[in-house]
Simulated assay, not measured.
Amino acid sequence: MFARILKSGTFHDVVGYVTRQFHDPEEYTPDTWRIIGSENIFTTDYAKMVQSFEAIHGFMPGKENPAGHISISFDNADAPRMTDEFMAQLAKEHMEGMGIKNTQFLVVRHLETGHPHFHIVYNRVNMSGKAVDERNNFRRSDRVVKAIKDKYGLTYSPLKQKYEDRIPVFKERISQAIYGCKSWDEFSRRLACAGIEVKFHDDHNTGKHIGVKFTDGDITVNGSKIDRAFTYRRLNNLFEFNRRQGFEQSDSIQQKPKVTVEYVPSQKPSLVEDVLGATIGAVGNLFTLGPGYDPQEEEFARNMRKKKKKPAIKHSH
C-alpha cells in the first residue's frame, strides 16, 4: 500500500480527471473506472458531482483549489483481496486517520493499470463551512498507511523504496545536464545519454507544456518531486536566461562547474516555494541552484562591477 498526496485543484479538474472526462474515450472506456464510495455527493453524472462539491465550497468561496486529491496503490500480491468494498473501507480509514472528517468525498477505482489503486477526492471545506485540517499531512499519511498495512497484513510494497532510492540518481543526472543549457532539446539530448527521457504534461485546452516529468523506463517522476528547482517553469526560465546571457562553457575553465541542490525527500514539502531557484555565481562561472535569484538585479550588479574595473583615462597636457 502506497499513498500519494496529489496537488489540490478545482472540482472541475480533479473530478474530471478521476472520472476520465478529459481522457480519450476510446482508450478510457466506462469499464476502466467506477465509483466505489462517496458521501454527501450526487453521483449520477459528472456535472452533478461537481455541483455537489461546489455547493459546500460556497460556504468558504475564498478557499483556493478546494478539491483535495489522494491516490492509494497496492502491491499486486494483495490484488486478490482488493474488492470494491474492501478498498472503500480502506479509503475511509485513511481519511479518518488523516483527519479528513465531516466533509464530502468521492472514491474512484481505476482499472486500466496493472496494479490495484483508487483515488480519493474530498472537499477541503467541511460540512460546517470550515477548512479541513491538513497540517503535516505528508507525515500523517505515512503513519496512517503503516498502521493500515499492519492492521490488515498488507504487503509492504517495494515501490516506495524504489522511488526513494532512484530520486537521488535522477537529481544528480539532471543537475549535471542543466549546466549551461539553452533549450529543452539540448537538455533532453544530454539526459538521453544518461538514460533518462524527458516527458511533458500539456494543458488540455491550449496544448502548451505546463509540466515536466522524467523516466528511466522503470519509474516516472514529476520534476517537482525530485526538486522544486526542476519544475517546468523554473527550468524553462533557466534556459531562457542562459540564452539571453549567451552562456558558454570556456575551455579555460580549470574546474568543471557544478550544480548543487539541496535534496528534499519526495514525501516532504520543499523549503523552496515560489522562487526561481537559480543563481548564477559571480566568480568562476560557478552555477548554483538556490532561492532569491533576480536576473535584473544580477545584471545591474555585473554592470557595476565592470564600471569599477574600468581603468581611468589619463589626459596628456
Score class of each variant (00 low, 15 high):
residue 193 C to T: 01
residue 178 I to Q: 03
residue 196 I to W: 02
residue 94 H to A: 13
residue 92 K to A: 13
residue 143 R to K: 15
residue 60 M to G: 06
residue 249 Q to H: 10
residue 187 F to H: 07
residue 234 R to M: 10
residue 7 K to F: 00
residue 107 V to F: 06
residue 47 A to W: 03
residue 63 K to E: 14
residue 254 Q to E: 15
residue 262 E to G: 09
residue 292 G to R: 04
residue 182 K to R: 12
residue 28 Y to D: 08
residue 151 K to T: 04
residue 161 Q to G: 03
residue 28 Y to C: 12
residue 6 L to V: 08
residue 204 H to P: 09
residue 305 R to E: 13
residue 214 F to I: 03
residue 42 F to H: 05
residue 181 C to D: 07
residue 313 I to K: 11
residue 234 R to D: 10
residue 279 T to D: 02
residue 315 H to V: 14
residue 56 I to W: 04
residue 142 D to K: 15
residue 20 R to Y: 04
residue 263 Y to D: 11
residue 252 S to P: 00
residue 293 Y to C: 09
residue 184 W to H: 10
residue 202 D to N: 13
residue 150 D to Q: 15
residue 10 T to C: 02
residue 303 N to H: 02
residue 8 S to K: 14
residue 307 K to L: 15
residue 151 K to R: 15
residue 292 G to L: 08
residue 182 K to M: 13
residue 253 I to G: 00
residue 49 M to F: 07
residue 196 I to D: 06
residue 119 H to Q: 12
residue 183 S to V: 05
residue 108 V to H: 01
residue 290 G to I: 00
residue 22 F to W: 05
residue 213 K to I: 02
residue 75 D to A: 07
residue 137 N to S: 05
residue 148 I to S: 03
residue 117 H to W: 07
residue 45 D to E: 12
residue 217 G to K: 12
residue 71 S to V: 14
residue 71 S to C: 15
residue 304 M to G: 01
residue 179 Y to L: 15
residue 243 R to I: 00
residue 87 M to E: 14
residue 151 K to W: 05
residue 183 S to R: 01
residue 173 R to G: 11
residue 150 D to S: 11
residue 32 T to K: 12
residue 282 A to R: 05
residue 57 H to V: 06
residue 132 V to F: 06
residue 187 F to Q: 07
residue 209 H to R: 14
residue 216 D to W: 11
residue 284 G to N: 13
residue 65 N to W: 01
residue 65 N to G: 01
residue 91 A to I: 08
residue 77 A to P: 04
residue 220 T to V: 05
residue 218 D to G: 06
residue 151 K to A: 15
residue 100 I to D: 02
residue 84 D to L: 12
residue 269 P to W: 01
residue 34 R to K: 15
residue 233 R to L: 09
residue 54 E to Y: 09
residue 248 E to M: 07
residue 92 K to W: 06
residue 238 L to I: 13
residue 111 L to S: 02
residue 111 L to T: 00
residue 155 T to F: 11
